[in-house]
Amino acid sequence: MKRVFLVAINHLRDQRWILLTMFGYALFMSSMMGVVVHRPNYQDAGFFVEQQMWFAVLFSMFLATSAVNTDMRTRRMQAILSKAVERWHYLLGIFTGITLAIASYCTVVGLLGLILSTRAGHTLPGVFQLAGSVLIAAVAVESVGLFFGLLLPPIFATTATVGFLTTIPLLAIRFASWLIYLAPVALLATQTVRQFNSGKATLMRLSLTATVVYAIIVFLIALTIFYRRDLARPTE
């Protein structure tokens, strides 16, 4: 596991500018909220933290869809895989690195939400449950992003990830609501929003479990593809 951790930290360091932008954005938005809205009310603080938190899902998708492709294109992957690093070390390292970044982001946004809500009068309940649920949703999206990122260039991989994750929920909205059970990430998202806003999510545990299982399965499929494919491109 040492190599997985080394690859993860290395990936985080490679992505430092993107991560700084992420954290900078969260800090900027929360300071705007604190300065412009001199004394934010309780509902505003809740809306703000929820909105910022869900950006984690987008960040995880963008980070995941480009990770492997960029390393392969720049040949940095070769420098790592020329050492005693198994392919699963590498992919799990990338996965862990992105997950660590998203977990940090969710924690920071949660803390900022707490600060803002405290200024508004009293502490928001369930901020860290929200952060945990969003993190799990983001990890599932990350798995899907990594999967498509192995097959397609980043822009197409991002499009494919969005398409893959939204098609079933859109069909569920349009045709049959039961279809939402085939889309664990969307189910978790709806349950999380419901739980945070009204505390009345009935399928929270089911959706969390389903999303974790979904993330693991998609990651294992991605790993199988990564094991089979060529990791260098023809030069001519």
């Binding site: 290395n10 360091r13 490679d14 720049t74 040949r75 940095r76 070769q78 420098a79 020329s82």
Partner: peptide, 10 residues
């Protein structure tokens, strides 16, 4: 191993 057109981590 040294790759051709090596790209190093920064």
């Amino acid at each position: 191993f040294l790759a051709e057109n090596l790209a190093l981590h920064n």
